[in-house]
Simulated scan of single mutants.
Amino acid sequence: MLKVIPVEEAIGLPLAHDITEIVPGKHKGPAFRRGHVVQSEDISKLLDVGKAHIYVMELEKDELHEEDAARRLARAAAGPNIRLSDPVEGRVNLIAEAPGLLKVDEDRLRQFNALGDLILATAPSNRYVKKGEVLAGTRTIPVVVKEELVRRAETVCKEPIVTVVPIPPKRVHLIVTGSEVYTGRIKDGFGPVVRHKLSEMGTELESAKLAPDDPDTIAGHIKDSYQAGADLILVSGGMSVDPDDLTPEGIRRSGARVECHGFPVLPGSMFLMAYLKETPVLGLSGCVIHDPVTAFDILLPRLLAGEKISRSDIVSMGHGGLQRKHDH
Rank of each mutant, 00 (worst) to 15 (best):
P215H: 14
V49L: 10
D105Q: 04
I298A: 10
F271R: 00
P267L: 11
T155E: 15
P267I: 05
D48P: 00
G35Y: 11
P166M: 12
R151P: 00
K146C: 03
R252V: 14
L84F: 08
S316I: 10
A228G: 05
G137K: 04
P168H: 09
E133G: 02
K103M: 14
V4W: 13
F296M: 12
E89M: 13
K28D: 04
I186R: 03
E66I: 09
K103T: 14
A228C: 04
G237A: 08
Q323P: 07
R171D: 13
M317Q: 06
V4K: 12
G189F: 02
L299N: 03
L120E: 01
G100A: 11
E147H: 03
S40M: 12
L272D: 01
V37C: 03
A10M: 04
V145G: 00
G132N: 05
F263M: 10
L47A: 03
L300M: 12
E259W: 02
L205W: 06
D68A: 15
R257A: 13
I298Y: 04
G100I: 07
S312V: 11
D231F: 10
G286Y: 07
I222D: 09
T138Q: 10
L118C: 02
A77N: 03
L102D: 08
R72S: 04
L13E: 04
P192R: 10
D297F: 07
A70C: 06
K51E: 15
T217H: 05
H173V: 14
V165H: 05
V241G: 06
L198V: 07
T138D: 12
A211K: 02
R72Y: 05
P192E: 09
V145K: 00
V194K: 00
V281C: 09
R252I: 14
A69V: 12
T217N: 07
K131C: 07
L282C: 09
E97Q: 10
G79T: 08
A70R: 03
V176G: 01
A230V: 12
L234P: 03
D213W: 04
E63F: 15
I22M: 05
A31L: 15
I309G: 07
D68P: 05
G12F: 01
V176N: 01
S236W: 06
K197M: 15
G318Q: 04
I251N: 00
K277R: 11
V56Q: 07
L120H: 00
V241I: 11
G262R: 05
K223R: 15
I19W: 01
T247R: 00
H36E: 11
T183A: 04
P301F: 01
